[in-house]
Every structure is written in structure tokens, then in C-alpha cells.
Amino acid sequence: MSVDISTVKRVAHLARIAVSEDDAARMTGQLNTILGFVEQLNEVNVDGVEPMTSVTPMAMKKRPDVVDDGKKAADIVANAPIHEENFFVVPKVVE
């Protein structure tokens, strides 16, 4: 499988990365090189093989469903480019 420039632009938009016409053209070539490389996986017979879900055979650790952390709003917004009264500030999203 290979991608064309319009697919690259669509994927860039899905990934929320702005691309110029030149970027998209360059990426098309590079992505096709990589997709060509991974194509060889199709040779592998995977009949009856389960997809890996955990690399170590372990049960997911569980903990009691209790609040054990919190009251850190100021810490959480401290690194935001813009914040006000413990809220993240973003451009207007609802007209």
C-alpha cells in the first residue's frame, strides 16, 4: 500500500500538524519508503496467532477505588502557556 499527497494531507489534519504543499510532497515520499519497508510483514503467516496485548504475562494491577491524590490544580496549570484562576485558557470554541 502507498499513500498519495491528498492522503498525507488528510492524515496530517487528523494528527493536527499543519503542512505546506512542499511538506506534504516531501512526506509522501518518505512515508511511502517506510510503508514499503513494513510491507514485508504481509509475508508472515499469522493464522491462529493472537495479537500481543501485554509483553509480560501479568494481570493488570488494581488498587482500591479511593481518592489518594488531588488538590493540585495550581501545579497542573503551572506549565500552561496561558492560564487563569486554575483554568487553561484556549481560543473561543463555541460561537
Binding site: V44, V46, E50, P51, T53
Partner: peptide, 11 residues
């Protein structure tokens, strides 16, 4: 999905 199956074979 194919890659995750191959990953199991590698393991």
C-alpha cells in the same frame, strides 16, 4: 493488528 500478531511470534 498484523504487527501485534508478528510481535507475538517474535516473543
Amino acid at each position: 493488528l498484523q504487527a501485534q500478531k508478528v510481535r507475538n511470534l517474535i516473543k
